[in-house]
Design a protein around this nucleic acid. Structure first.
Lengths: 249, 249
DNA sequence: GGCGTTAGTGTTTGATATACAGCATTTTCT
DNA sequence: AGAAAATGCTGTATATCAAACACTAACGCC
């Protein structure tokens, strides 16, 4: 414990919570650990940060090595550094979440195939992950829930062309609450952030829906004028009343 | 570059943006650096994290060493790790902000006195701080602005007993916007988070105001029932109209 | 007792959120 | 060809919340 050198016997890593949306379900990409510690358990993809690498760069690298994707939405969330969080030494980890369009790549094409899988987020939260990854996943999921209501990032999880119903299902999956169809559409369309592509869905066994595209430029333009995106988790009226009564006491 | 050892030639620190509120002004506690690098510049208080110390513990320690205060509000904000952010080596830093009641202690009693000072936040943002502390300060200030609207943490900056006007001035200082007195009071009081102490200000050369106290238990109770605190930065109606017209285009 | 200063209070109006149901369009099946 | 199945799409009435705004009340000081 003498000298500064002790301070340099530690390492840092990034862990990346990669979210995807498929089949009405919010998923997270996990890796099955092939070696100790925690061999056989599912873990978040991550890696030590190279000595001459910025933190964000490391997070992007982890993501690209796993999915081949380069331009993805990535956001730093929190840093975890409990002394005993890594059994082999002092390793603090900077947690990120990223949002990918599952349709953009196929895991089965990867050599990892057997050890990399999309998992339902809620199931994963209840299962036992390696290290402190349960807490990390929970923290990042909470961050996603918050961010998605306040920034138009949901689109990062959808294909470039999507229907309003798909968008609504996405929000319902993330917020774990049902939204009113008419009110949702009214609100989303009133922001004028979506371009109507004048195209219809194809190959569906029912009336095809119109396709839309998110207009990012438009968003930046409005944002610069004080516009703030917001999708509220609809509070039912009766719940509101209950709360009002509690406050009144 | 061979072997894992390279990964252990790095260190991590915490930096703490300590906010205080005084005289209608939001302040931040800075230290004048006595040694290179950045000698003579003002810097955020911070320290390397001890090998057997959790991150939050380190942040609390920095705070206590400087102010003598133990129970303060502290929140992790972001981690900064650009390769070149520290001239002497790879040091990533985990940034925290904390909220203290300036009245709880006197800096002049400290041996640091000459080198530790409260600075106006806006001035500090425009001056040149050591390392990447301008960005850190900005990031933490933005985080404070956001958090204060959404969690009842403003009270951490005020003495235990305060007037509604003091509370309003606090919000105005943080949000950099004027609030309507009647609407503000209506909103705050309607949340029933304040206890009316049935006491009055003393020693003021005008009509004394009633003193209130934040009821933390009450907040936790309401929170558990779905209550969410919110103070909005009041959007003026004409600005809203401008935005509405822009959207309509 | 009058002046200076801050405290304290309600109402009207406009905007936004909520609740809610039926017809339209397409495919598929017989 | 017609019916059935599935999802797409649309508007209004009501309740709630936010915004704007100005005067009287209480105290200290001179």
């Amino acid at each position: 414990m003498n000298g500064d050198n002790n301070f340099f016997k530690s390492a840092f890593s990034v862990d990346n919570v990669i979210f995807g949306f498929d089949d009405g379900d919010l998923k997270v990409l996990l890796i099955k650990r092939g070696a100790a510690p925690f061999q056989g358990l599912w873990a978040l993809p991550g890696d030590l940060v190279y000595p001459s690498e910025d933190l964000d760069t490391a997070a992007y690298r982890v993501l690209e090595e796993l999915t081949g994707l380069k331009k993805v939405y990535l956001e730093q969330v929190h840093t975890f550094g409990a002394v005993d969080r890594h059994p082999l030494g002092r390793v603090i980890t900077i947690a990120y979440f990223s949002l990918v369009k599952i349709s953009d790549f196929t895991l089965t094409a990867s050599s990892f195939a057997q050890n990399v899988e999309w998992h339902n987020v809620h199931h994963s939260l209840q299962s036992s992950l390696a290290f402190d990854h349960n807490i990390i996943l929970k923290t990042c999921f909470d961050a996603l829930i918050h961010r998605v209501r306040v920034r138009p990032i949901g689109f990062e999880l959808l294909p470039p062309k999507f229907t309003l119903t798909e968008l609504q299902h996405l929000y319902e999956a993330i917020l774990s609450s049902d939204l009113d169809k008419r009110n949702f559409r009214k609100k989303i369309l009133s922001m004028s952030l979506l371009m109507d592509l004048d195209e219809l869905q194809e190959g569906v066994p029912h009336r095809p829906a119109k396709l839309y595209k998110f207009n990012k430029d438009r968003y930046h333009q409005l944002e610069a004028h004080g516009f703030s995106f917001e999708v509220k988790e609809s509070k039912k009226k009766d719940k509101k009343k209950q709360l009002a009564e509690l406050i009144a006491q």
